[in-house]
Amino acid sequence: MSNPAIAAKPRVALFITCLGDQFFPQVGECVVKILRRLGVEVTFDPRQTCCGQPAFNTGYRQEAREVATRVLDLFEGADYVVAPSGSCTSMMRVYYPELFHGEAEKLAKVERLRTRLFEFSEFLVKVLKVEDLGASFPHRVAYHDSCHLLRELQIEEEPRRLLRAVRDVELVEPQDNQLCCGFGGTFSVKFPEVSVAMGEDKLRAAAAAGAEYLVANDSGCLMHLAGLIHRQGLPLKTLHLAEVLASQG
């Protein structure tokens, strides 16, 4: 299954993300399982916490810089850094350069991080060059493009390719599939009425397409959508892509 072109055993430092650590540890376990099966050595530095995005997106740049500086130092030595989140990856790849604007030494570290940093599905398809992970998932699945993954990182095809290779899965594309789900970080609590209304549209479209599962690569979207589904008692389930890819049917 692993790509023979990558001869030496690649070493991946896992950036679990704070939401992943606290709410969805099983997603991290699936990521580790999948990467190990592909011959990757996975390390986890327990000193890691958050990428700083909540502070950055709420306009508190100084606090965001303080938290982000730690991330730069923690991952200096790793071959690759992989995060199961489009949003955290885009924070580090796209917004760290802006956050550390004018700080040459930090920017050099940011550059070193950026060349080795990958979102999980991107790492599988672009670096390890695998699509078929031998998974089986006999369900009807709608893939939800999380906005940062899609529009900040332009990762659109990779997760779909991985899903298409899963045995017995039926992939459906709901209407307006690339519309935001309404999570938006602190937006979800600052403008809860709008956030919820946007989420409801998303769920309605997924149900209309006959999806049993909504699959995404971002814990934030999944938390928001799962919370809505649970509150409203809808016949839909959510999963992280890694959970589907680790599934054996």
């Binding site: 679990i16 992943g20 650590d21 606290q22 709410f23 969805f24 540890p25 099983q26 991290g28 376990e29 580790v32 986890f44 327990p46 602190t186 979800s188 609590v189 600052k190 809860p192 009425e193 956030s195 919820v196 989420g199 938390m223 928001h224 799962a226 919370g227 809505l228 649970h230 509150r231």
Partner: peptide, 29 residues
């Protein structure tokens, strides 16, 4: 209490996992 109240006004909040990923890591490793 705000900000969590903003969340739970319109949707449920998943409970924090019994064991975080970092707490599981020694075992996973």
């Amino acid at each position: 209490m705000y900000p969590a109240s903003g969340w739970t006004d319109g949707r449920d909040l998943p409970a924090l996992a019994r064991k975080t990923f970092r707490e599981r890591w020694t075992e996973i490793e």
